[in-house]
Simulated assay, not measured.
Amino acid sequence: MSLLYPLRFSPLFKERVWGGRRLSRWFPDLPPGPIGEAWVLSDHPQGRTPIANGPFRGETIQSLRQRLAEAYPDRGDQLLLGRKGVHPRTGEFPLLFKLLDARDDLSVQVHPGDDFPGLPPGELGKSEMWVVLDAEPGARLIHGLADGTTRAGLAGAVAQGRTMEALRSVTARPGDVYYVPAGVVHALGAGLLVAEIQQSSDTTYRLYDYDRPGLDGKPRELHIEQALACASYAPPPAPSRLRTPEPNRWEPLVTSPYFITEYGRCMNCWYGATDPNTFEVLMILEGTGTIEWFREGVEPVAAGQTWLLPAEMGRYRLTGEFSALRVRMP
């Protein structure tokens, strides 16, 4: 069998006009400037995160897949990602994981679905979810359109400079969970720190950006026609909340066609096992502990880290006291 083990990834940082400095709570070496995004696990061409531990240090998912394909020609991907872990159309790793610091409001935007005709070649649609990790008092976000808003109504509001009147704006609290399928008009507001899980896509259509300049001093491009064309005019999925789970048990958060996300709290000792059909990703939210796998290996884990557990790894044990999100393929 292969020598796969739990893989920890080094983040890639993205400067954004709306970013801040709060990601330094997890990443003391945060580069200067307004850092809005840490891509903590990605194999998207716009940013492939390197492995940070073990014999495969410095490899990306892409390069590790190539190495495994040479060693195991008929089952390299199956060992690493499982039968469901490669997108059937693109042949790529299907998900992207981020931590977001919204010091200022993000643009109002909408993401296309996989079947949107205007997608760039090789790109997926973009359904995503948010877990609010921290929120300043009164912080808000946009999740869908105001009740009764039609395409004509939204187009009219945009044309007349009344975009915000057509949107559903809600107060956000730490622990809130939002599913944002493709088509839902959305935006994070100022003062939010968020974990984001999404399809591996970097396609966004901006509907409104507060008439502000970008990092280069020029207005950022809007994509109003594309946004109107792919927007959903139905109510968005109802939000939920993180609840204190029983120790050592995964509680479901979002089950979608693109990912299954659960929340759990390790206390002392917790046994698990990967499913040969899918990789597992653990996003460590708070606390510290270890991952021990049954090929005589152990790795320390800490808040801010993101781990990929290969599909073929099998049994493992978590120890310590920490909370995490677990993500698998449906």
Rank of each mutant, 00 (worst) to 15 (best):
D176S: 06
H44A: 02
H186G: 10
P28Y: 03
Y205V: 08
T150S: 15
L167D: 03
L106E: 13
R8H: 13
H111T: 13
P120I: 07
S10H: 08
P117S: 05
S240H: 03
A311H: 02
F279V: 03
G91K: 08
A166R: 00
E286M: 04
V184P: 00
P34N: 09
M283F: 09
S169Y: 00
Y263N: 00
G148D: 07
R173V: 03
H44T: 04
P28Q: 05
R57Q: 14
R317H: 00
K14M: 12
R8E: 08
Q198I: 11
Q109N: 08
R22K: 12
F259Y: 12
L188R: 07
L41D: 03
A102V: 08
R151A: 00
G118M: 06
K126P: 04
L309Y: 05
L222W: 11
T150N: 11
F116M: 02
D115W: 09
R265G: 00
Q46A: 14
I61S: 00
G264P: 04
E136W: 01
R151H: 12
T49M: 04
S232R: 10
P245V: 13
L309A: 00
L242V: 09
L318C: 12
R315K: 14
P181N: 11
G264T: 13
W270K: 11
L124N: 13
W18N: 06
P252W: 06
F279K: 00
A157P: 01
S323K: 13
G153K: 09
D211S: 11
S24H: 11
H44M: 05
G125N: 05
T60P: 08
